[in-house]
């Protein structure tokens, strides 16, 4: 009777992200055997702090990729928002107001992207590539190319502080944002419409969904989260640097893809993305503990992404085949009845 949900939520969740979990387990077991420093509380918290900035951007990236688009501007937006925040604080603006200003800079950039993409039909790749270039230039012009130091303690605590003397502040921010974006994606019509548009844009239009609004909102969200990430990164580095976010967009895409998202849109979730970010974080941390050179880390990252995507594709094919067989069995039974 109740065949809407045949598996319980928990089982369903784990089976959905089986690939990523398999990776996580293998890596955790491997690292624990190699290094006794790996599975310590301080190292785990350290990993979480290292992934927090990437995870926050990747959440926004997931929304864009779910729509069938992409946001290449996030790395550059990080630079602008960090630099502006540092500048404003140094100029004597209230710290919280300055941080809000930095975040809103990201929102504006995101809204610009979203409005252009949804209303002109220029591909997201092109639009965000352009805004990346523009933001990069802005960050250098504002700073004249030099880092802007900022040692205000109320500010730097957002990058380096701890809550209850144990949990790093960026980790807490990441978890709060995660809860928020997961809720938005799973529980609201906004989330449902994201899946509908990414899955079939024409169908979404005929279903009466305001595609322009949903798309603009999604890119605004991505820009806003990049703004948050920029503020945290500046706080962590005690300075706003014009090149702080270079290449972050690619790491965010990597986390999203490892987390099971399809680049053609419609498939994926922030729940997978946070695991994807974790996979990258653990891998980098493990290679660091093994004292491997940075270049090995990039090779490992490439291999892991490929393997994760292969596993995902295979899993999806099997699931589809299972469903087709079930439908065929039903048809068979049915025609048996009528014959």
């Amino acid at each position: 009777m109740n065949n809407l949900k045949t598996k319980s939520g928990v089982v369903n969740y784990f089976s959905k992200y089986l690939g990523v979990y398999a990776f996580l387990c293998i890596m955790v077991i491997g690292m624990t055997m190699i290094s006794d420093k790996f599975l310590t509380v301080s190292n785990v918290l350290n990993i979480l702090r290292q992934i927090s900035v990437n995870a926050i951007i990747a959440f926004g990236m997931t929304y864009c990729i779910l729509l069938g688009g992409i946001d290449l501007s996030v790395g550059a937006v990080i630079c602008v928002s960090g630099v502006l925040t540092a500048l404003m604080i140094n100029a004597g603006v209230n710290v919280y107001a300055a941080m809000l200003g930095g975040i809103l800079t990201g929102s504006v950039a995101g809204m610009f992207n979203g409005a252009l993409i949804s209303r002109t039909g220029i591909p997201a790749f092109v639009v965000t590539l352009c805004s990346q270039s523009i933001c990069n230039g802005l960050a250098y012009i504002i700073t004249t190319g030099k880092p802007i130091a900022c040692n205000n303690e109320t500010f730097t605590v957002f990058g380096n502080g701890y809550i209850a003397n144990a949990i790093p502040v960026p980790v807490v921010i990441m978890l709060i944002i995660f809860a928020l974006v997961l809720f938005l994606l799973v529980k609201t019509t906004f989330g449902k419409y994201i899946y509908a548009i990414g899955g079939n844009r024409d169908c979404a239009r005929y279903a009466g969904i305001n595609i322009e609004r949903v798309e603009t909102l999604a890119y605004t969200l991505s820009g806003t989260l990049a703004g948050v990430a920029g503020v945290i990164l500046a706080a962590r580095m005690y300075s706003g640097q014009p090149n702080a976010g270079d290449g972050y967009e690619l790491n965010a895409i990597a986390a999203t893809v490892i987390g099971g998202a399809s680049m053609t849109g419609g498939i994926g979730s922030v729940a997978g993305t946070i695991l994807g970010a974790l996979v990258i974080g653990i891998m980098n941390n493990g290679l660091n503990l093994m004292k491997a050179q940075y270049y090995y880390q990039t090779i490992a990252k490439g291999v892991v992404i490929l393997a994760a995507v292969l596993l995902d594709t295979y899993k999806r094919k099997m699931e589809s085949r299972r469903q087709l067989e079930a439908a065929a069995r039903m048809a068979e039974k049915d025609s048996g009845k009528t014959d």
């Binding site: 809407l4 899946y195 079939n200 024409d202 169908c203 239009r205 279903a207 009466g208 498939i267």
Partner: peptide
Amino acid sequence: RNGLVLIQDLAFNMSLC
């Protein structure tokens, strides 16, 4: 092309409107 999100399940498609 216009009526279904093929990669989503029945429950999603039937509830979409």
